[in-house]
Amino acid sequence: MFQRVLRDSDVIAGALLAALGVFILREAWKWEYAGFDGPGPGFFPMWYGVAITALSLWLAVGRVLRLRTEESGAVDWPGVGRALGTWAAFGASVALMQPLGFVLSFALLTFFLVTVMFHQPVKTALLTAVGLSGGFYLLFPLLLNVPLPTGLLGF
């Protein structure tokens, strides 16, 4: 029973949001609530901080009380893994844009996604990566004068 409570997504979300609410309240406490010129910077955060804390506790506690009657659905772990893997690759490519620039790191991201996530042959992946990043480069900086992140190599 206790383990089920700890693994329930609503309980976890409620707890995390309650922590956020407490953090907001702690910060808001440091700022002026009201001054001569009217409400201060702490006024609004104080109120939504209270609301977040209250509602998230309601979510978590309400869920615990109903846990006996409702089963939480099974999680599609391989699917979640694919989604989080994609996200990690995306995050890494954003981090690589500082040294490599958009074109190269986006090509790497595309290559990774096409081979690993979509199980396509390496040749297809190479073509897609080169075609897409080349297309972006032609369209945005060259044709439309829209800036893309540039790396140490200058593109």
Partner: peptide, 23 residues
């Protein structure tokens, strides 16, 4: 979709970089 999805991510980056100009 193996072309479309990376393209969506790329366009998203271009869109945000166009607005904020910062990595």
């Amino acid at each position: 979709s193996y072309i479309l999805f990376p393209a969506i991510l790329g366009i998203s980056v271009v869109g945000v970089f166009g607005v904020a100009q910062s990595l």
